[in-house]
Simulated scan of single mutants.
Amino acid sequence: MTFVLPDYQLPDFLLPLFAGAPLARFEPCPADGVAPADYHATSIFPEYVHVRQEHWELVRNSRMDCVIRKTNGGLLEVTEFRRLQKGDPVAVGRGERGEDGIYLHTSGFEPARECDGEAFAFRTGTSRETSFSIAYDTLYDIMRHDKEHGRIIWVAGPAVVFDSDARKAFCELIDKGYVHGLLAGNALATHDLEGALFNTALGQGIYDKKQARLGHYHHLDALNTLRAKGSIKQAVQDGLVRDGVMHALTRNDVPYVLAGSIRDDGPLREVQADVYKAQDAMRMLAGGATTVVALATQLHTIATGNMTPSYQVMEDGTVRPVYFFIVDMSEFAAGKLADRGSLTAHAILTNVQDFMVNLNRAL
């Protein structure tokens, strides 16, 4: 059966709450980087702003914990506090049901389920006891669809490249066209390149798991070698790096962002050391995502979840859902993502190496 995206259900603008709603109010920012009092903070859900009589405008490129600014041309844009300039008009009012001219639409793709009228039911959440067969099948269908009709963005921790089969599977997915962008840190790229140069990750064989002599130098040697080359791309072009995830991304011209952290060794020259430049670069990729797959990296996953809306407005004006999958062995990691506001994320609790191999085989 061919996968079909769910229809987006518009709000019923004939309801009394819309008919009697005031126009949204915009107040000037009192200073650079400071929103007016009673600013309206955005969420991951579609939000409509009553900009003129009988016209509610859907905010595009939204994300949580930002504000809605009106441009000089009258367009609405979602932006961070740090980008605000004194005098910028920003939407105010914290009502979400139209009383302040703003409506938060949470059921556009999935109307509220009533479970046959029962207020109580077992196993409504996700745990290690949950069967993930349907989650896998759903992911396969979505990825086949979005390979041609969307943008699949991956968020990956170094565990993905600690195993030779998982690393190879990821490379094959890149070659097959299932990766349109990667968000990661210095560690994933460094250990992937260590694998290319020494066939180890943190000094341990990526296939036989044996500790190499002086293996604890390998990731530093990889960093030093790549820094001397000037770039990952140059190392690939010169034939120094002949396999691995970074090799596949470079060869297929797939964009990636490596965001720096306090604990980084080296780092690689491609790592964005400025946290806000890294955030901007991550948002450019995440903002265009239709599907996100996050693999065994808690902090990068939460960061991406916070900057990824639950919907995407396509070029033809249609609205479609953004699918978000987190793959981790830890229930805590999946729960923490939900606690940070990414309520639409689907968790698959499993070993990430097995997940990658199974996913590649299925696709």
Score class of each variant (00 low, 15 high):
H247K: 11
Y8I: 03
P28G: 05
P255W: 08
G125Y: 01
T79L: 08
K233R: 14
L197Y: 10
N306V: 09
V34G: 05
E77P: 00
A333C: 12
Q85R: 15
Y136G: 03
D192I: 08
I174K: 09
T290A: 06
I152C: 10
V293L: 13
Q279I: 08
G95V: 06
H219V: 09
S330Y: 01
G230Q: 04
V179K: 05
V293N: 03
S310W: 07
V313Q: 12
L295S: 06
H105G: 08
H149N: 15
T291L: 14
M284L: 15
V67K: 13
A222P: 07
N358F: 06
L295F: 07
D328K: 01
H180K: 12
V319H: 09
D274T: 11
I302E: 14
R94N: 12
N72H: 09
V4F: 03
I262E: 12
P255Q: 04
A278Q: 12
P309K: 08
K147A: 10
I68G: 09
R242Y: 00
M356E: 00
A362P: 00
T250H: 02
G203N: 07
G108R: 10
G215Q: 09
A166T: 02
A212S: 14
G335R: 05
P158V: 10
M246F: 15
D339F: 03
H300A: 13
E148P: 00
T250V: 04
T42I: 07
L220S: 00
M64V: 12
E54P: 02
G117L: 02
D32V: 09
L240W: 04
Y178E: 07
V352L: 05
D339M: 11
I68Q: 09
F132Y: 15
D316Y: 06
I153V: 15
E331M: 02
D7C: 03
R340W: 00
M356Q: 01
E47N: 02
N61H: 14
L188Y: 09
G239S: 08
M282R: 15
F3T: 10
T297D: 05
A31E: 13
E118R: 07
G203H: 07
Q312G: 00
N199L: 11
R60Y: 00
D253K: 15
L202Y: 13
N186Y: 08
V155N: 04
R83P: 00
D175S: 10
A362N: 11
A24D: 06
A273T: 14
V49T: 07
T126G: 00
D265R: 12
L220A: 08
P267D: 09
A222M: 09
A35H: 13
L220T: 10
G287V: 11
N61T: 08
M282V: 10
F170C: 11
Y276R: 14
D221T: 03
D65N: 15
R144T: 06
